[in-house]
Simulated scan of single mutants.
Amino acid sequence: MGVVLAMLLAYGINWTFAYVMPVFVAKFFADRPEPTKETFDELFLAMVVTVLIAMAVSNGVTQYPLILLLLVGLLMFWAYYLFQNPKWNFFSTILMITVLLVPYMGVIHPAAALMLGKGLMISGCGAVLIFWLMHSLLPDLDSLAMWSAVNPEQGAASGDTERTYEAERVRNALKALAISFPVIAYFYYFQINGALLTMAFIGILSLQLSCPKSIKLSLFLLLTNLVGGILAVIAYELLVTVPWFPFLLAMMALFSLLFGQKICTEPGKAPIYAGIFSAMLVVFGAVISGSDKAIDVSFYTRIGQISMAGIYLIFVALLVDLHCGATSKADI
């Protein structure tokens, strides 16, 4: 119900970057048992950072490309580092999307950077309000237990263990940055048409590369994004056949119910279903929320860009992990 309500508002009103609100709502329901004070604190901090980045870009940082790319790289590293702490997942996701898209929009259309930042703020606030509303109207007494089974809390580290953990987070963040930053710099340099959606997808996907065991994770990402892309194509073709807003809502409600049931009944596989559903929402929502008259061309062009970006991230992650594994064996 929450995701469907987010779709109704996002696709119906269609403000700037409205299509990310259903993605945020789906992420909340998959990752958190219920809205807490920490949820609102995290949202507020994310919104403040969003506004600050938008204001900085609007005031002329884009006139210095090297400084701009350096700042983007540093903030990406911070997002990768924070993402490894479950308490900061939402903040790091908002930060990553903002860091990649707002400066890029400032380079292309400086006056639109602040508007994009406001759009992300509205989507984030709306996602938290819908999440709180659904839990208020339909409380789930078993949600905390299920969430704990899917996301077990780790004991607090201390001393050498804590320092080792922090060093591992730094290494993982540097690895993710080394993999993703070249393609981001490519988009910034050549200013590829329609790059906003692709970079948003890269931002969300590359956050997962900051986690350990990236070889298995890369295969997981390949599977989820491939299936999610296929489902987005199917949904799009159905919508072309029946271009009617109530049909759109009914179709997406069906997808939401199917994935929601899978996530609730199979908590062990919840990350897989959540990843597939998120990939579908990002790709499908971005296109139908747009105003491009050549929607057929733009849809498949963006699918191609996203596929190439995803293949690049996954392939390089595999190479890095295989190289690191071979180096470790040689040292032994």
Rank of each mutant, 00 (worst) to 15 (best):
S136Q: 13
S210T: 11
L9S: 06
A167T: 14
P212S: 09
L281V: 01
V61D: 04
I303K: 09
Q154H: 11
G60P: 06
S289E: 09
W244K: 08
F181P: 08
M7K: 09
V283G: 00
M21Y: 04
F91N: 08
L75K: 00
K37F: 12
H109P: 00
F284C: 05
S148A: 15
S123M: 06
L95D: 04
A145H: 15
F28P: 04
A176R: 00
V51A: 13
P212L: 07
I130C: 00
S256Y: 10
L177G: 05
W15F: 07
M252S: 12
F277L: 09
F40A: 14
I202A: 04
L319R: 07
P103G: 01
Q154Y: 09
T16N: 10
M96E: 02
L141F: 12
V150Y: 03
A279T: 08
V320W: 05
G275F: 02
V61I: 15
T36K: 10
M252F: 10
L116Y: 03
V4G: 01
L221N: 09
L129T: 03
G60H: 02
L138S: 14
V320Q: 02
A270L: 07
C211M: 13
M252L: 14
S58R: 07
M96G: 07
V48E: 12
V20T: 01
A294H: 09
K175Y: 05
L100Y: 03
A10Q: 02
M251K: 08
Y81I: 00
F245M: 13
L207K: 05
A195C: 06
H109Q: 12
L221I: 12
L120W: 04
V99L: 02
K27I: 11
L313R: 02
L141P: 07
P86Q: 08
A250F: 11
F83Q: 09
